[in-house]
Design a protein around this nucleic acid. Structure first.
Lengths: 241, 241
DNA sequence: TTAACGAGTTAACGGCGTTAACTTTCAGGC
DNA sequence: GCCTGAAAGTTAACGCCGTTAACTCGTTAA
């Protein structure tokens, strides 16, 4: 049995620690380049090591295996997407949550179209395919990403424009606690969260169906459809065009 | 160079032809079982051959390679899904296209939840990942599947309930010809096709986001959300609840 | 009857993830 | 200032994968 620790105890200030951080960053950089230039199938331990002038087993000093490396790459991409969305949100800080959410939606589509392979890695697969254990880092980064959308939706709810559908059987939504935990203490009612999820579903579907090419058969330019969908989403959140 | 023809010329009535057809069917059956029981990564030439008591190179008598085999599996799954949707459509033939489309939407979700791995193979990946050449059999089977939805939408359009959004810039939709070809001569206007695509996008997104587990964080039972979404889709097609 | 062909085999190549056993380099305590 | 131990990296190997080449065997059709 190998006695190598997963995360070696390098002094945080020391040189060794700095070199290790840079190696970790280069691994993710290389993996992403392979993902972008040659597709998800090319993100391979041996290929990454080759590009870095190393051999594959050396990567086990940094990640427990191929799956963990891809997981780390996924997390970093979630973070980057979250940053892009946050930047779009803060582009016009005084414009109000409606306008800001509109910007964020379009930024999501723009990011997906500019980085289709990355978007595919994040969203084009079952989040739990009997492999990825829940509660991982990817899960947290996913929350960072979704939090940008949720935060603006909460602001819109505070403005009072949301009219949740009446008569909804509240037989669902028991895990509200986790959502509320990530909403940092906003007592959002259940039916409003329902609206949030409905809007998120719609946004995701619109972007995914376009990026994954399932729309090529019908539309040459899906942009008007997207803008129209965002209009309807914002109308559902009490912010008509 | 190997001189083996891709599709040997076996007499269509003869015994040899029958045996070959059964072998082709068994390959797909085995591939699907591996997909369902062990995930997409287990659909392997060697594994399929092993299960069938053969060796991997023998499969090259039936498919040009791994990609073509998976493609054939994809097509057969599209066909099965199309059959399921058509059956749901014909369950209540006299109920009118609105009720029928409602049934079909719920059947789509039911099929996806009952066969998540298959659904993932069909929809959880870029349709053109620099590999799959367009115009293949999968493309045709995909049309068979989408045709069930499109057909009912056309019927709804004939009923006259659709109010397409006004003032849409028609800068999109040049490939209407291909859509019309598969609509078998129904002169559907552009803005109505726009409504079709918007509804299809919404339906796909709702099902996909649930099946791929991107909703687990918020909802324990997404069924009410789905029913509500179908209601809105049908309202957009002129068939309020 | 015989020649062609379909179906299947074995052997091999290169690439993959992963493990084991080894060497080298370097940081920190005596 | 040396020494020890851990971190970083190596080579070799195992079993998987897709794919190709060269071969055998049985059936079919002329």
């Amino acid at each position: 049995m190998s006695s190598t620790p997963r995360t070696p105890r390098t002094a945080v200030g020391g040189r060794r620690h700095r070199v290790r951080e840079e190696a970790l960053a280069e691994i993710l950089r290389t993996g992403r380049r392979l993902l972008v230039e040659e597709g998800p199938g090319a993100v391979t331990l041996r290929a990454i090591a080759r590009e870095m002038g190393m051999t594959a087993p050396a990567l086990y000093r940094y990640y427990a295996g191929h799956r963990e490396l891809v997981q780390a790459l996924t997390s970093s991409l979630y973070d980057e997407l979250a940053d892009a969305l946050a930047a779009a949100r803060d582009r016009h800080p005084a414009a109000g949550p409606g306008r800001q959410l509109r910007e964020v939606c379009h930024e999501l589509r723009a990011w997906a179209l500019a980085h289709p392979r990355e978007f595919g890695l994040l969203f084009a697969k079952p989040v739990a395919d009997a492999d990825t254990t829940p509660g991982t880092v990817a899960h947290d980064s996913g929350w960072r990403f979704g939090g940008v959308l949720l935060g603006l939706m909460v602001e819109l709810w505070r403005k009072g424009g949301i009219r949740p559908p009446t008569g909804l059987d509240p037989s669902w939504a028991a895990q509200l606690e986790e959502v509320r935990e990530h909403l940092s203490g906003a007592p959002v009612p259940l039916d409003v969260i329902y609206v949030f999820v409905a809007c998120w579903t719609r946004l995701y579907g619109t972007v995914a169906v376009e990026v994954f090419g399932h729309l090529d058969f019908a539309l040459t330019d899906p942009e008007p459809l997207f803008t129209h969908t965002v209009d309807e989403i914002l109308a559902a959140l009490g912010e008509p065009r």
